[in-house]
């Protein structure tokens, strides 16, 4: 039986600007299962990224609830949400989101130092994660000295260095060429193959298909779920 990792119930997100209320997410209810690779696709403005922000605790929903296992995360305070993001979640941002003052390995070390690991241990963990993502030869380069694909792989290494319970990715190939996009998607596939739960927003149907399930969003509502026929490695 599938184990539910994230349980979303009647999730609503509205944005208000003056008197105008924009309903971005409309009463979403669904589950994400342990070890699943869920792709979320939809046209621009459908609410994909907003959904990811709610799931990954970067934003608070207007109403509804999100449970991680038995823990309701919707009502957690800001310190608890930060601690949850640090210890249980990994996040791959659209534009790499690396810290420009830090080298590749230092970028990956940051969350592990925050988790309480000594610098030497954090460095070993970071090195292992970067080597896993095939950027082990770029440890001491600053982000500005890396290609887009390399930067995104460093970003993935930072997200997975602590083996998170859930890995969120927001259009990770949006700014990459085909070669780099393929490399990045290969990295995600490899992580999934080793049991990583992944929720990925993608604008490209082709890459969305590598997930186990595809959630089609339209105007803030779930249009349908589509099982993927992509073969796991």
């Amino acid at each position: 039986m599938k184990e539910t990792l994230i349980k979303v119930k009647h999730l609503v997100k509205n944005y208000q600007s003056g008197h105008i209320v924009t309903k971005v997410l409309k009463n979403l209810t669904f589950d994400v299962y342990k070890g699943e690779f869920l792709s979320v696709i939809g046209p621009s403005g459908s609410g994909k990224s907003t959904l990811l922000y709610q799931l990954s605790l970067l934003d608070r929903p207007t109403s509804g609830s999100i449970h991680y296992g038995k823990l309701c995360v919707t009502d957690l305070g800001s310190k608890e949400r930060t601690a949850l993001r640090l210890n249980y979640l990994g996040y791959v941002f659209q534009e790499y989101a690396l810290l420009p003052d830090l080298t590749a390995i230092e970028n990956v070390m940051v969350p592990n130092i925050m988790r309480g690991f000594g610098k030497a241990v954090a460095r070993e963990m970071a090195k292992a994660a970067l080597e896993k993502l095939n950027v082990g030869h770029r440890l001491d380069n600053l982000p500005g000295q890396l290609s887009g694909g390399e930067q995104q792989r460093v970003s993935i290494a930072r997200a997975i260095a602590h083996t998170p319970a859930i890995l969120f990715a927001d259009e990770p190939t949006a700014n990459l060429d085909t070669v780099n996009s393929d490399q990045v998607m290969d990295a995600f596939l490899d992580l999934h193959y080793h049991g990583q739960t992944i929720v990925m927003v993608n604008h490209e149907q082709e890459y969305a298909k590598i997930g186990d399930r595809i959630m089609h969003l339209l105007d803030g509502s779930i249009e349908r779920f589509e099982p993927s026929h992509h073969k796991k490695r």
Binding site: E80, E106, I113, M114
Partner: peptide, 25 residues
């Protein structure tokens, strides 16, 4: 990893040495 609310709250209050270590870094 199991999601543990008590551990999260504890983490939020006991992280000063870690905060300083990372801040120095």
């Amino acid at each position: 990893k199991t999601f543990d609310g008590k551990a999260l709250r504890k983490n939020g209050f006991l992280s000063l040495p870690r905060d300083i270590t990372l801040a120095l870094f």
